[in-house]
Amino acid sequence: MPLFKTIDISPTSKVFLWKITEDFNELFRNVTLKDTSLARLEGMKSEGHQKGFLAVRMLFQHNGYDDFDLYYDDFGKPHLHDGTHISISHSFDFAAIVLSECNIGIDLEQIKGKIIRLAPRFMDVSHLENLSETDTMRKATVVWGIKEAIYKLKNESGISFQDHIFENPFQLSEKKCSAELHFKDIVQHYNIIFEEIDLEGSQPDGHNYMLVCAVESE
């Protein structure tokens, strides 16, 4: 399938979404992989993860890059050789990348009911009070995405979602908020943008996705 959607996060940051409708072989035939990526692909036990990995490479190609333009640092963070900042995420039938002139983190999550049960493990559940069940799922998914996106952006071992990353109160309708990372005696502030990806009933299970991006405040 062609590109599903592009989202302008800012004048210098853009998200690209790919809906994975292809089978593994079709994706594999349409990308070029360096040896290290091929070995990584072959080591994945889940075909879903393999397809997500390949769909990300399809997004590279859509933007004029290929697998040889990408490298990972010692902490596993992706970088492009031309200096453009990149962050990567995939979830079930979607893959996403964000390209930016500034350091940025992205997370894409399917909105599912189990997030409510897990919420006390990673967030202040008082932020979920007085919401419908649907909005509780949506907001908890945003908070999880905030923490994933900041973790990817900061890229340091030892960061705890529950103990070090804190979202400030927000409303779902605002589609933006702020958050803080308290780590190694330093407090860093982040601007957060989030958007629900509306599939317009195309998913049999009815689950939409939540996209979250984090950028460090100036």
Rank of each mutant, 00 (worst) to 15 (best):
M123H: 03
M123D: 03
M123K: 09
D124Y: 05
D124K: 10
D124V: 10
D124T: 13
V125R: 12
V125C: 14
V125M: 12
S126F: 12
H127M: 15
H127T: 14
L128G: 11
L128M: 08
L128I: 07
E129L: 11
E129D: 15
N130A: 13
N130M: 11
N130D: 14
S132N: 00
S132I: 02
E133H: 14
T134A: 10
T134C: 12
T134N: 14
D135W: 11
D135A: 08
D135R: 08
D135S: 10
D135V: 08
D135P: 10
T136M: 13
T136A: 15
M137K: 09
M137S: 05
M137L: 00
M137Y: 06
R138E: 13
R138V: 10
K139A: 06
K139E: 08
K139H: 09
A140D: 02
V142M: 09
V142T: 01
V142I: 15
V142H: 09
V142G: 00
V143R: 08
V143H: 07
V143M: 13
V143Q: 09
V143P: 05
W144I: 04
W144V: 07
W144K: 04
W144F: 02
G145Y: 06
I146G: 01
I146R: 02
K147A: 04
E148D: 07
E148H: 08
E148W: 00
E148C: 01
A149L: 05
A149S: 15
A149P: 04
A149K: 07
I150F: 02
I150C: 07
Y151N: 10
Y151C: 00
Y151V: 04
K152R: 09
K152V: 01
K152M: 02
L153K: 12
L153D: 12
K154W: 13
K154D: 14
N155Y: 06
E156Q: 09
E156M: 01
E156D: 10
S157F: 14
S157D: 13
S157W: 13
G158K: 02
G158T: 02
I159Y: 00
I159P: 06
I159C: 03
I159D: 08
I159K: 03
S160E: 09
S160K: 01
S160A: 04
S160I: 00
S160G: 03
S160T: 05
F161K: 07
F161A: 11
F161D: 08
D163V: 10
D163Q: 14
D163M: 11
D163K: 15
D163I: 07
I165G: 03
I165W: 04
I165L: 01
I165C: 01
F166G: 02
F166T: 11
F166E: 04
E167F: 03
E167V: 00
E167G: 01
E167C: 03
E167S: 10
N168D: 15
N168V: 05
P169D: 06
P169Y: 06
P169V: 03
P169N: 02
P169Q: 03
F170S: 08
F170C: 04
F170G: 03
F170P: 06
Q171S: 13
Q171W: 05
Q171N: 14
Q171L: 12
L172I: 05
L172A: 09
L172N: 06
S173M: 02
S173K: 08
S173V: 06
S173G: 08
S173C: 10
S173D: 07
E174A: 12
K175R: 13
K175S: 11
K175D: 01
K176H: 13
K176D: 04
K176V: 02
C177A: 08
C177H: 04
C177G: 12
